[in-house]
């Protein structure tokens, strides 16, 4: 039996990778992937806790997260395609129309 702390450390590493990628990457697809990485890090801790405490709610929650992530991916990718069509770039530093 692998101890819980291992899972949690792995989950933390995954999450930290996601955050780092989110902050330093310029390509919008990479940023997207980083977000997925963070979500999966969280999912890992959910299932780890669920296994540890023999509680199903953690497992159920992971399904929710996956569904949301799938929906987000669909919408997000659609937006990315739309952005690319108008701006012809995927560099977020050049997509800055939201500023004041």
């Amino acid at each position: 039996m692998v101890p819980l702390s291992y899972y949690l450390v792995l989950s933390g590493i995954l999450f930290a990778c996601g955050v780092t990628g989110f902050l330093i990457k310029r390509n919008i697809i990479s940023i997207f992937l980083s977000i997925e990485l963070m979500l999966n890090g969280v999912n890992l801790s959910f299932v780890a806790f669920a296994a540890q405490w023999k509680a199903l709610s953690g497992q159920v929650f992971v399904f929710f997260v996956m569904v949301v992530a799938a929906a987000e991916a669909a919408v997000g990718l659609a937006i990315i395609i739309a952005v690319y069509r108008t701006r012809e770039t995927l560099n977020v530093d050049q997509v800055n129309l939201l500023k004041l």
Partner: peptide, 17 residues
């Protein structure tokens, strides 16, 4: 305060982080 609203996605991300 308005300099926070740079429009730069990564700086927003930085603030969130």
């Amino acid at each position: 305060v308005r300099h926070m609203q740079s429009g730069n996605l990564r700086s927003y991300a930085g603030w969130v982080a």
